[in-house]
Design a protein around this nucleic acid. Structure first.
Lengths: 229, 229
DNA sequence: CGCTGTCTTGAGAGTCCTCAACCGTGGTGG
DNA sequence: CCACCACGGTTGAGGACTCTCAAGACAGCG
């Protein structure tokens, strides 16, 4: 039954759902959950679209983006396992979402879940913690885009990715160079050149375009935090 | 008594406090509130400082900023009447706050208010709405910093300021050119030149450095949203 | 084997930054 | 009363970082 799926969910520990502990409430939550798969490159939230669903990422990675009429794109962030998407102050989404790699999602009807949230203070509390954390991440991104150089931006990105990988030396980058560029407010060429510069400086190795081996994490962090050029 | 002060508070309608409606809860909230005045230029939150207090802005405007070790500054946003400051996922503040003009604040002890919030679901719900709104604002700022030109950034800023002024043609800018530059990821010279360019184009008039009269709001919005050059 | 898509690398251009001078206002004090 | 200074803002000239345009390398795939 549905409840079992939630209990066995690999993303449960990382997600807001872990706030729901008692079996009755979890049964209700499970009842509203609809599992789905999204293939790489597929869009599952359209910017400006009415916000009908919430999504919980249970596998894979998504890119969240905003577009300008002439096609310029800014990737607001990447959503990995445990991310909760679709909360919005307005009645429509303020950004689009597209799978970077094959994803598994848990979809909730927005109206139904909104009612459930109101009756489950622990869930709402956990959401508040998550939105607060998200604000901190976005503020850091604002600093990056407003005041950091290309080199500092890429170093920051790599440090963040390494933290997501629990400090492992080898970091996987499921997104393309274009995605990284649109995330860091740069062009694909500048991203590529800056990767090359970090490699030449002996800070990283690039076995292939979708993974990085970090040789000198301390130096990378120093660059990221603006402690030297 | 304290309750009366909350009930008569001019910022109440605009703030999260309006979520607390019943008298008993409001009395508890009022009991934790400590009114204070901060003069222009004074700092009331230091970056990295342990987060001991929440603040509710009841008058004036603050700038919220992050610094890099070499002095580069990014203004994350401006906090006006009704803004609730100090929510953080970590135990210390991730940004500093300084009064742009004389301010009045309502200060709450973080631990005490956190306890209150847990017992007042309406308050927590309202905080979630506000943090969600804040996320939307920050995402728009990320788009601005990552992908907009200087002209588009300043136009966006003026449009936002006009909305805060309820659409009035004459918009007050309490902050300095340096503050605007640090908010838009530009230099003071570029801000000044871009103001000049918008003035020459007949879109705005600058009676003095701290106010703008908007002559062609539609054109300004078109520039802001990237619908033309 | 050619096609497609992604990434890399190079050369030149452009937007914005840096450095610098100048202007206007307000406050201070001789 | 006015010289002087501090501060914020404006304007100009030159430079730099990143972008644009372009070509080439490489892997995957029909």
């Amino acid at each position: 039954m549905a409840l079992e799926r939630c209990l066995r969910c690999g993303a449960r520990a990382a997600s807001v759902c872990s706030a729901v502990e008692d079996a009755d409430s979890l049964a209700i939550l499970a009842h509203h959950a609809h599992g789905m798969v999204v293939e790489a490159g597929q869009c599952f939230i359209d910017e400006e679209e009415p916000a009908r669903f919430f999504f919980n990422v249970t596998a894979g990675t998504a890119k969240l983006f905003k577009l300008l009429p002439d096609g310029r794109r800014q990737i607001i962030g990447f959503a990995g396992v445990g991310a909760f998407l679709g909360l919005t102050a307005a009645e429509h989404h303020a950004f689009g979402a597209e799978a970077v790699e094959r994803m598994e999602l848990c979809r909730f009807d927005r109206k139904a879940l909104t009612g459930f949230i109101h009756e489950c203070p622990e869930f709402e509390h956990r959401l508040l913690v998550e939105t607060t954390r998200e604000i901190g991440i976005l503020q850091a991104q604002v600093l990056l885009l407003g005041r950091k150089t290309a080199r500092e931006r890429l170093a920051t990105f790599l440090v963040q990715r390494q933290e997501l990988a629990h400090g492992s030396d080898v970091v996987r980058l499921p997104m393309t160079r274009t995605d990284i560029a649109d995330h860091l407010g740069l062009t694909i060429e500048t991203v590529s050149r800056t990767f090359g510069a970090l490699r030449k400086a002996g800070l990283i190795v690039l076995p292939d375009p979708h993974s990085v081996k970090i040789l000198d994490g301390a130096a990378l962090r120093a660059i990221a935090f603006g402690e030297n050029d």
